[in-house]
């Protein structure tokens, strides 16, 4: 299990979600991915996707206009 950073800053919807999904496919169950996004829609879109697919939202924080979302791969 490891932590990985997915830097999707300065891409627009649905760029951050697609970046996350691309990296999620390559990750292993139990890995935590931290997504960086400057797109405000990410804050709602990513948890919605995580919930539908069945992964786990670990945290969601904003600092200096950048959202940091941590997601654990569950399957």
């Amino acid at each position: 299990m490891s932590e990985k950073l997915v830097d999707a800053r300065d891409t627009y919807c649905p760029g951050p979600l697609m970046e996350l999904i691309t990296h999620m496919k390559k990750a292993e169950v139990g890995d935590v991915l931290e997504l960086l996004s400057t797109d405000e829609g990410t804050v709602n879109d990513v948890p919605e996707w995580v919930d539908k697919i069945g992964h786990e939202m670990v945290s969601s924080e904003e600092a200096d206009g950048v959202w940091h979302l941590k997601i654990r791969k569950m399957k």
Binding site: C13, P14, L17, M18, I21, D45, E48, W49, K52, I53
Partner: peptide, 9 residues
Amino acid sequence: MVASVGAAT
């Protein structure tokens, strides 16, 4: 956008 987000979800 609709196709990619829909498919990914």
